[in-house]
Simulated scan of single mutants.
Amino acid sequence: MTQELGRPGARLGRPRDAGLTDRLLTGALDLVAEVGLDRFNADALVTATGAGKAAVYRRWPNTEVLLAEALRRCHPVPAVPDTGSLRGDLVALLAPWTRAMDRDERALAAVVGQARHSEELRVGLQVAVVEPLDAAVTAVVDRHAARGHRVSDRQGALLRRLVLALWWDRSAADPAPRTAAEVGELVDRVLLPVVPVG
């Protein structure tokens, strides 16, 4: 997927027009979500956005760096309301799973496999998914503890790992929407046993 953009000795990474930079980053997300990573390249981006190739050359050294920056604009993890219970909070966290994947989710899913071989893409996923999801689960666990339930560090860490693993599985293997009942069953059978509710 990596396509080198700059010439040796060329000055890189200095956007000259914030509006054009925004258009290129938005176009990158649109494109990779639509056609996948294998067909994402600078030529396709230029065609899709109407930007000149020189505009891309001035900003990023290759398409992985470009796409990694674009991924940081994705916000797939919802803000989780305080529902009053651990179960309700976890169901709210997984609420996006009851609908088809949106543009951001499709773009992120498209790079999951390649991120194993790309530090840039791995960092993009870390910022867009791993860190927000970790923060969301931590907030849910802290609320549960504040309601008077004891939660060990080990239990909290295991819950975070499970939720992240399920998130990656949906992205990479099984993106079909679930019903609300299926999400509830997943929470009841897989997640709730990790953290005591009594």
Rank of each mutant, 00 (worst) to 15 (best):
P196R: 05
V112F: 04
R73Y: 04
T138K: 03
G52D: 15
L133K: 00
H75N: 11
G27I: 02
D169Q: 07
A55P: 05
A95S: 12
R73D: 09
A128V: 12
F40D: 04
V123Y: 04
A10L: 13
V77G: 03
T83P: 05
P96W: 04
R170S: 12
G6C: 14
L29W: 05
G52V: 08
V112Q: 08
P8C: 12
D38I: 02
R7G: 02
G156M: 07
E120D: 14
R11D: 07
V46T: 13
L191F: 06
A54D: 13
L66V: 12
V123M: 08
R160K: 15
P76L: 09
R178W: 10
W168I: 11
D153E: 14
V35G: 03
E131G: 01
P132D: 08
Q126S: 14
V141H: 00
T2E: 08
D17I: 00
V127C: 05
R154K: 09
G6W: 00
R178S: 13
L66I: 11
G52W: 03
M101H: 01
R154A: 10
Q155Y: 04
P193N: 03
W97A: 00
A54W: 10
T21E: 13
R7C: 08
D153S: 13
A54Q: 14
L5S: 03
L66D: 02
A180I: 08
D22G: 11
D43Q: 13
A51R: 03
T26I: 11
E4Y: 14
G27T: 06
V77R: 01
D142S: 09
V80G: 07
V197A: 08
V141Y: 00
A28Y: 00
R23A: 12
E120L: 10
S171E: 12
A55E: 13
R150D: 14
A181E: 15
R150F: 11
V194I: 13
V65H: 00
H149V: 10
L162H: 02
A100D: 15
L121I: 08
A107L: 07
V163P: 00
G13N: 13
R58Q: 14
P177Q: 11
L86Y: 05
M101A: 13
R7W: 10
R16Y: 10
L37C: 06
R154I: 13
V183S: 04
L158V: 14
R170P: 06
T138P: 01
R99A: 12
A128T: 09
E119N: 10
V190E: 12
V123F: 10
R16A: 15
R103I: 11
T49G: 07
P177E: 09
L192A: 02
G88A: 06
G36T: 06
C74G: 05
V137M: 02
A176S: 11
A92E: 05
L20K: 09
E4D: 15
A128W: 00
L25P: 01
V140T: 06
D43H: 11
R116E: 07
L192M: 09
P96R: 02
V32P: 00
A109G: 12
A44M: 03
A100P: 08
Q3C: 10
P61W: 02
